[in-house]
Design a protein around this nucleic acid. Sequence first.
DNA 1: GGCTAATCGAGACGGTACGTCCCGTCTTTAG
DNA 2: CTAAAGACGGGACGTACCGTCTCGATTAGCC
Lengths: 198, 198, 198, 198
Amino acid sequence: MAVETHERRRGAPRNEAARLAILRATASLFATRGYDHLTIEGIAAEAGVAKQTIYRWWPSRSALVAEALIEGLLLTGPFDLPDTGDIRADLVAWLEGLFVFLDDPRNNALICSLVAAAAENPEIGLRLNDALGATTLLAERLDAAVAADDLWRDTPVQEIGDAVLGVLVVRALQRTPADPGLPARLVRVLLRDPAGPR
Amino acid sequence: MAVETHERRRGAPRNEAARLAILRATASLFATRGYDHLTIEGIAAEAGVAKQTIYRWWPSRSALVAEALIEGLLLTGPFDLPDTGDIRADLVAWLEGLFVFLDDPRNNALICSLVAAAAENPEIGLRLNDALGATTLLAERLDAAVAADDLWRDTPVQEIGDAVLGVLVVRALQRTPADPGLPARLVRVLLRDPAGPR
Amino acid sequence: MAVETHERRRGAPRNEAARLAILRATASLFATRGYDHLTIEGIAAEAGVAKQTIYRWWPSRSALVAEALIEGLLLTGPFDLPDTGDIRADLVAWLEGLFVFLDDPRNNALICSLVAAAAENPEIGLRLNDALGATTLLAERLDAAVAADDLWRDTPVQEIGDAVLGVLVVRALQRTPADPGLPARLVRVLLRDPAGPR
Amino acid sequence: MAVETHERRRGAPRNEAARLAILRATASLFATRGYDHLTIEGIAAEAGVAKQTIYRWWPSRSALVAEALIEGLLLTGPFDLPDTGDIRADLVAWLEGLFVFLDDPRNNALICSLVAAAAENPEIGLRLNDALGATTLLAERLDAAVAADDLWRDTPVQEIGDAVLGVLVVRALQRTPADPGLPARLVRVLLRDPAGPR
DNA sequence: GGCTAATCGAGACGGTACGTCCCGTCTTTAG
DNA sequence: CTAAAGACGGGACGTACCGTCTCGATTAGCC
């Protein structure tokens, strides 16, 4: 019978309060100052912690950001994806919400900072989908729509998710405000209705 | 007309050799060391130039990168977009080339560095399209295809370009190698053939 | 004709005010806190100077102390060596002054700190003689006394100086207060009068 | 009558093996790395002991050195003081041995390290005499010589010992190699023969 | 030709953050 | 109660760059 022997190490165990304080300080400073300007010393000071305690558990600044992102401390999402039965209308509404979010320069800067962090740490790139809901919410909804025959059977759900996230990232990097028709046009491209106009 | 308004100042004129040496040093160090690790002092040393000469003409590190990008010193492209008459096949071939490019970790790192620089400087984000050919090449080709009735009249060319660039960026940030079918699936999503299977 | 071409280096010249502020801060902190507890960061802060400015010109903490010692910022001396014609009486008086100086714990600590610094940096050891006057004052006086036939012709002046300094150092390290007869006994040993008692 | 007053505490008794390992590690690291560079963590690692075990029994780094010195782990002496009947010749020979010892830079560094430790801890200063034999050996010999009427009755034995030790310390701090005549000149100063030349 | 103004190299400077080392204390498991 | 293990807050280390500045040297236009 597989007893969990769990060979307990000697010495004081890791201080969970310190870990949380560090991640929270990371999130707070990341949001207010951006990824550049985010310093280990600043985090340590904000968290009331010695620098070495950070270096003991995280190999880099970007790893801190990745963990804070995973813990949901960086992006408050999810951005609700409505379910009215019309998959295209729902998607347009969801994208409109995202573009409104991006219109606030502070949010735009937040996304840019996340992208900068992702450029240093692949894990952040991988988690960006989840964090913005492009994977969890969108993929589930698309899968359901495919199952309900609202979309073609061979719809490449993964690629659509990447494209949505990609457009968001690219527009965030360009700091161009979205024009009102953008969400609809995007949906028209990504979920082209076969009965649509030639 | 066209009077030489350029009111000639007194004193020594700007040293073009220094300007070029600086941009070349920027490009070289950017390619080898990445955007983080790119330092003004390093560029000055590599270019055999005083720091002040850099600060005199560029406001920031990212401005240097932007100018080097514009001058075509960072990305050797363009990645040729073939023209066989079949817009979808051409696009698939072009994307395959880009994903092969991204499969080399050094190129992937280069793109990530560019994205990191873009996160600091919107101009770099705007130039990324051009640099990767997503605007110039792709948009022209799509416009031509629309004109030739190979694509719907209302095809949102701009959005497709953003989506293509976005997918490339997102996959670069995730460092995931592309599977062989990806280019075809992407083209199927973005340029859905209305005569395709339901 | 030997013109002093004095090949002038380019770049800003060394800031003499900063140099002095650093040495003065060194002296001040050395006197108040002791050699251990003397930190580069503390000196930089006290002098209102960047750390790098210190590291640019001095290789180590002990080099700072050595230069401060040479500049006469550490020991206020000289401890006057009286000249009444009686070399032995003069020496006794001088030593009494030195032992009174050592009786103050702060002065004792100062000497111990200097010895600690000398243990790291030979130059400090070499300058200790001068700083305490054991070389300049004492040696001159002894030489004069030899010339005046008040001491044997073969009196090893250098060794007497070392012995005097050595006794002071050893007693400082032991923190033993000097008993009143010590100076006289020392002089009796070092400048034994041939007509003295057997 | 020798009652065992040593009120036996509860719990595990002090681990003598650990104590010895710590002192031996102290001595080893002190000899190889010097007093600065001697760290509690280094000693603990070398001795295979927890830091707390050191802090439980010794108040400071210098106390460790003091105890290692007392246990004879730091200086291998004694440097034999020959006894040929001629006190002056014996002393010259003994001093020559000491200066030869000091001529090896590693020994010189060892003495400097001891002096640095003494600057922090008076006890080490007090033990230095014993350790170098300046007290035990020299003082006994001088006392015997006085008793045998080879030296004046009022010879200040203590001061001569301090002077010898002092000269050694000062020359060690100056890192000046001794010239061949130094021991003889020192003995001439310290044990001046009244029948000597004027 | 002298004057003024700008550029350029070199590099000193005050400052910030880096990542590492070690301090002395505390907390846990083991004996 | 001792001991090994090791986490912790703290402080200083020596280094790397930042962006600004002060130099001497050079190169133009202007009187």
